[in-house]
Design a protein around this nucleic acid. Structure first.
Lengths: 210, 210
DNA sequence: GACTGTGAAGCCATTCACAGCT
DNA sequence: AGCTGTGAATGGCTTCACAGTC
């Protein structure tokens, strides 16, 4: 079992398999084959087997995988055997929506702080949290051992906000601001660029009408 | 120049180049090189040239690209020379946030309807829109020639909502529900799975501490 | 001298096909 | 007979390197 160079696409699919296995397990399914998983998530059976094989031998030849077992393995691989505390910087519409997003909690993510430096937003209540000024960012991050930050500030404020997070000890950033962040190489960044996502669709719509 | 098989990654980058060029143009920059674009968006100069070359010869050897010109080309390629009307299905926190998301309007996307079948949400005001019941979906889509739908409903409701959109004539769906949609092959779907995005980060955090 | 456009090379991910178990 | 695990083949994207142009 060698965990040397794993394709990012494999990790993305692993997350999807993991959720699919959760459902299967809930339905009482005991044994599941690569073909069944593949059909459920829309990839090829060979892809499922290859992806899993990066991390070990979880199945039984001639039989398949034990659903509950494989679920545990996928969660472990993704680092989801435990809670993660997360902070959100940017308490606009998007940031506020993410604080209430159930999908995060269901997968073990706990948002422990929301920050903004807009005075009109500070003090606003979101679920059981109150929007704080960014001067309290460092303290909250230290107190709760936060390793992950979500950035939902305007592009113009994104680099500054990222620097605050990084200085306070955050090691991973999910960036919704449509801008390229520069960060030290021990910090992981992934972007979610909402407009770009829509533009992929418009591109294809245009292609088709030819 | 033939536009036969263009990598999805190229389209994603094109969207990023396009936004970068908008900023450059705003700053009064007339001429820009592949190296400058590359530095601005974090890719290699060769990648920039290769991406652009899929669609034509936009530059001048020995000189570079005309910023305004190239901007226009990229927008045209992405289908952004004009407005796109969009509907949002699911008026929860996330759907509501997207209705107000400025990034969409800045790139020519106009949200013309928000729908839900939760009676407590119908009638709620979001900017200049009022949340409607899904029975009015088809009419709004037809009246406004809507080709794009954004899905922000729970996973359990996603396939039904997608079917409504497709039956009404929508040809592209941006799906935030963590589930695999089945759609006819003339409909484009792209997923944004927020939890998966975070899980990529936790995976890497776990790798690192070894 | 500087920079684009592009064929060729290199690299990485997916698919194939089959040996190995049950 | 059925299904996993995997080396080999394939396919596709990125990088290289240079000819072509200003």
């Amino acid at each position: 079992m060698k965990a040397l160079k794993i394709p990012e696409a494999t990790i993305v699919r692993l997350s999807v398999y993991s959720r699919f296995l959760e459902q299967a397990d809930k339905k009482g399914i005991i044994t599941i084959s690569s073909g069944e998983i593949a059909a459920g998530v829309g990839v090829s059976p060979a892809q499922v087997r290859k992806d899993l094989a990066y991390f070990g031998e979880f199945g039984t030849r001639g039989v398949g995988y034990n659903a509950k077992d494989l679920l545990k393995h996928t969660l472990k691989i993704l680092g989801l055997n435990g809670k993660w505390t997360v902070v959100v910087v940017g308490a606009g519409n998007l940031g506020s929506a993410l604080v209430s997003y159930r999908g995060f909690r269901e997968r073990g993510f706990d948002i422990t702080g929301v920050f903004d430096n807009d005075l009109t937003k500070i003090g606003k209540r979101l679920l059981d949290l109150e929007v704080m000024g960014t001067e309290r960012l460092e303290q909250v991050i230290n107190d709760n051992d936060v390793k992950i930050g979500i950035l939902t500030v305007p592009a113009s404020a994104a680099q500054d906000a990222a620097n605050l997070l990084i200085n306070a000890g955050v090691k991973a950033i999910l960036n919704f601001a449509p801008t390229v962040l520069s960060v030290p190489e021990d910090v992981e960044v992934r972007d979610i660029d909402l407009s770009t996502r829509l533009e992929i669709l418009t591109f294809h719509l245009c292609m088709r009408e030819k």
